[in-house]
């Protein structure tokens, strides 16, 4: 059992350490796709007895869950059930929330995330995040995608060009974007912005992509494109997605976890959850009787 009182500012010393690790993590990124199919254990995250408090509010209660590699795991549940909070524990984005207390074990590839030895900066490079509202920086399309590589010290133009093209191709907007790379990203449509944000995340070759209701601000066609993209991306990346949209969870995810009032009620294969839910509450929720 580990106790962490995370303060709002990440440790400056850890930032220093990050510089030394850039080279190492780049090497690892380059070949991680090869070994991911062969030698890696099948679960990416292993969470045991996770408890999370915001001040006096008990937001996550004894959550234990294993998240599969190269699969899409959907987190569903009514608003305030803790699914987004849980998502944020996976890359320590909640370090920035005040008065938060986390107990239990969260492991990424067998390594404790909330351990002192884990550098949150490095963790977030491995576990990227896509947000509910598309949030491109007020920069050019090119600079948005090149942002991650640049903060990791890549400045060679030819190298950056290659990364930008690859990332935008991966999310399927290279052809639309290649002639307007120097234009501001804020001029794009919502759907384009969200795919740009995914490209920005991919540009640093993460292992996991966390998506926090990535389509809730988008129109149906853009939503469909993002869903198709997620299905495509799971071949190379592990994806955890929070969604309010039951059909979406059903359509794209391999496994589904149902949260209610901070508890993980049911977790299993998506087909099982939607066709034969074991828990009464799960059934009521997915059939739309509350939520």
């Amino acid at each position: 059992m580990r106790v962490n009182d995370n303060t709002i500012r990440a440790d400056e010393d850890l930032y220093e350490m990050q510089a030394d690790r850039i080279d190492k993590s780049l090497e690892k990124d380059a070949d991680h796709t090869d070994d991911s199919t062969a030698s890696r254990v099948s679960e990416k995250f292993s969470v045991k007895d996770l408890n999370l408090h915001y001040g006096t509010f008990h937001a996550l209660k004894d959550v234990s869950i294993d998240i599969d590699t190269n699969a899409i795991t959907a987190l569903i549940g009514p608003s305030g059930c803790g699914k987004s909070t849980f998502l944020k524990t996976l890359n320590r984005m909640n370090d920035f929330e005040e008065g938060i207390k986390i107990e239990g074990s969260v492991q990424l590839d067998g390594q404790e995330i909330y351990d002192r030895a884990m550098n949150p900066i490095e963790l977030r490079q491995r576990v990227g995040m896509v947000f509910q509202q598309p949030n491109p920086f007020p920069k050019t399309i090119y600079d948005n995608v090149a942002y991650g590589p640049r903060i990791r010290g890549i400045h060679k133009k030819s190298e950056l060009d290659e990364i930008v093209e690859k990332a935008l191709t991966e999310v399927g907007i290279w052809d639309e974007m290649k002639d307007r790379l120097k234009k501001s990203a804020l001029g794009l449509s919502g759907g384009q912005q969200q795919r740009l944000c995914i490209a920005r995340t991919l540009a640093v070759s993460p292992e996991v992509i966390l998506m926090d209701e990535p389509t809730s601000a988008l129109d149906p066609i853009s939503t469909m494109k993002i869903e198709d993209l997620a299905m495509e991306l799971k071949k190379k990346y592990t994806i955890v997605i929070v969604t309010h949209n039951m059909q979406q969870a059903n359509r794209i995810s391999d496994k589904t976890a149902f949260f209610l009032l901070g508890e993980l009620i049911e977790y299993g294969k998506t087909s099982d959850i939607f066709l034969n839910p074991k828990n009464k509450k799960t059934e009521e929720y997915i059939t739309g009787r509350f939520g």
């Binding site: 963790l123 491995r126 990227g128 920086f137 995340t201």
Partner: peptide, 20 residues
């Protein structure tokens, strides 16, 4: 969202402030 986006990509607070 600017800050979250940048921190979420593994940027440090200093990098986030200067570059975004």
């Amino acid at each position: 969202s600017y800050k979250k986006g940048s921190i979420g990509m593994g940027a440090t607070l200093r990098q986030t402030i200067i570059t975004v």
